[in-house]
Write a protein that binds this DNA or RNA. Structure first.
Length: 228
DNA sequence: CCCCAGGCGTCCA
DNA sequence: TGGACGCATGGG
């Protein structure tokens, strides 16, 4: 396999996989037209939860005029929990939303100020918030702040390991570093690739399904796993 | 009845 | 450091 002089990328399989999925499914358009605060709220609410259930909660928050960091900071936690009931884990998530909102107000004032932080500083700050782990932090970095940070999830690890791009025992940081080093570091690319991997995982790479006959990554057209 | 979803913190070895 | 567990609704 060739080594790109300009980028230093050695392993082109992630890009091939990305191109294969993009050709098969087209752009997924995740979080395209929502506000920054709505994207962040959604990132927290969707922890281990289907997006459909999250959307219902977001509609309630919109109706209650609660898509606002200041209002979320001041509302009673129990009442906030009732608003986001459909997203599951509502007691935990009500606290987590308020943890974020209150620390934002106290330490940075508003989202515009938060956005002036470097990607590394912003990530460190997010990870220090109780209830925000790596995946949620990186989702916020990528989808709310358009930073070139790849979001690793269970689908990513499952698909990559099944196609032998990584070891089965690889952890979050290992997988993220691998992708960062072998795929053009653009927010738009990472945004689309992550969304495509989630779709692929849902449709044909479930835990029970060892293999899917309709998966774009399976069969003659898949070139990402061929030594080129 | 079962399993699953765009995780995280805690506890325990 | 790594695995088990609680958290909870809604869909298939």
């Amino acid at each position: 396999m060739g080594i790109s002089q300009s980028t230093g990328i050695v392993d082109q399989r992630p890009d091939r996989m990305f191109q294969t999925l993009l050709a098969a499914y087209g752009p997924q358009s995740w979080w395209p037209a929502e506000s920054v605060e709505e994207t962040i709220i959604g990132a927290i609410l969707t922890q281990n939860t289907s997006w459909k259930n999250v959307e219902r909660a977001l509609e309630v928050l919109r109706r209650e005029e609660m898509m606002d960091v200041g209002r979320l900071s001041r509302i009673e936690t129990e009442q906030l929990a009732t608003f986001i009931r459909s997203s599951g884990y509502y007691n935990q998530k009500a606290k987590r939303l308020q943890n974020f909102c209150r620390r934002l107000k106290d330490e940075h004032g508003n989202l515009s100020q938060l956005a002036t932080l470097s990607t590394q500083d912003l990530r460190d700050w997010l990870l220090d918030i109780h209830g925000i782990g790596k995946e949620t932090a990186d989702s916020i970095l990528l989808y709310a702040f358009s930073r070139p940070v790849f979001v690793v999830d269970a689908y990513t690890i499952r698909i990559f390991s099944r196609h032998h791009l990584i070891k089965e025992t690889s952890g979050y940081d290992q997988v993220q570093t691998y992708i960062h080093e072998n795929l053009k570091p653009e927010a738009q690319t990472y945004n689309e690739f992550h969304a495509l991997l989630v779709r692929t995982g849902k449709e044909c790479c479930r835990r029970k399904h060892p293999r899917c006959e309709n998966c774009p990554l399976t069969g003659d057209k898949a070139r990402y796993n061929v030594q080129g």
